[in-house]
């Protein structure tokens, strides 16, 4: 079940060995699949997304409409393919803003310490004290929903968590003697942050980025499901479920497949980050 592959062999045979199990590989494959779909969606979608192609509504799966038709008789497959651009794109943008901001602030707080650290931590913890979906509801109620607002809101909701995570890791690394050595050498804060601390928290931070990406996808879908996320005529996967919720009692594929699309994306990200390729150091080698 476990395959071991060797990369970049060095003379003498002491190069690093990587282990990447099949669960992680499936996860990675699915992620790459959705990334591909999001990039090339307009080219591969069989129908224009707005076109009412079927006379029937909530039509079944057929050779003509692989995933059935929706409440207006539009092709569900095309709408899911194009919807991936919103779900993946908005979530990616939000997670990068949240993690970049959170990690930099977290490292600075850990290295500086003192009053800066205390105040920032208290403030961001307080923001963590607002349930995420509620925060989204209130902001959308106040300023309306648009894609930049969604990205910033989602980023604002998950920044405190990314900060807290990165700060905790950085505080641990900061307490290590090698950072003390660098400090005693006379190094300045930017060097400490980017050369001594960052390389040592990178792995966990990337895994955290994945976890947070999943949360953001779920929250965005939830907002869209409530009609507060991506606005018509555009639709992400959550909005597709909302549009077609009437078809639920009919068991229509138009409700089920957008759900499955979300699940395949979030589950594959989780599978990948729980089974990242591991560098193996065989101590007795």
């Amino acid at each position: 079940m476990i395959s071991v592959l060797r990369t970049s062999p060095r003379p003498g045979g002491t190069g690093p060995t990587w282990r990447f199990n099949w669960v992680g590989r499936i996860g990675l494959a699915m992620i790459l699949f959705w990334a591909f779909v999001a990039i090339f969606a307009p080219m591969i979608a069989p129908y224009p997304i707005g076109e009412i192609a079927d006379w029937d509504y909530f039509g079944p799966m057929s050779g003509q409409f692989w995933l059935g038709s929706d409440y207006l008789g539009r092709d569900v497959l095309s709408r899911i393919l194009v919807g991936s651009r919103y779900t993946v794109g908005i979530s990616l943008a939000a997670v990068f803003v949240a993690c970049a901001g959170g990690v930099i602030l977290g490292m600075v707080a850990a290295v500086m310490g003192g009053i800066f650290d205390t105040l920032l931590s208290r403030l961001l913890d307080a923001f963590n004290g607002i349930p995420s979906l509620l925060f989204g509801l209130v902001v959308v109620a106040a300023v309306g929903s648009s894609i930049p607002v969604l990205v910033l809101t989602l980023a604002a909701i998950y920044l405190p968590g990314a900060y807290r995570f990165a700060r905790a890791l950085s505080v641990n690394v900061n307490a290590m003697d090698f950072v003390t050595v660098a400090r005693a050498r006379g190094e300045r804060t930017p060097y400490l942050i980017f050369r001594e601390i960052f390389p040592n928290i990178l792995g966990p931070v990337l895994a955290d980025l994945g976890v947070r990406f999943v949360f953001i996808v779920l929250l965005l879908s939830g907002l869209s499901f409530l009609g507060l996320g991506v606005q018509p005529p555009n639709a992400d996967w959550g909005a597709l479920v909302r549009e077609n919720i009437e078809g639920l009692s009919l068991g229509a594929p138009a409700v089920i497949f957008p759900c499955i699309a979300i699940a395949t994306l979030t589950i594959s990200v989780n599978m990948f980050i729980d089974n990242l390729p591991k560098k193996i150091r065989d101590r007795s080698e």
Partner: peptide
């Protein structure tokens, strides 16, 4: 369950 949205759990329960 954690990896999917709440509305999907609800949808599945209804189905």
């Amino acid at each position: 369950v954690i990896s999917v949205p709440e509305f999907m759990v609800a949808t599945l329960a209804v189905l």
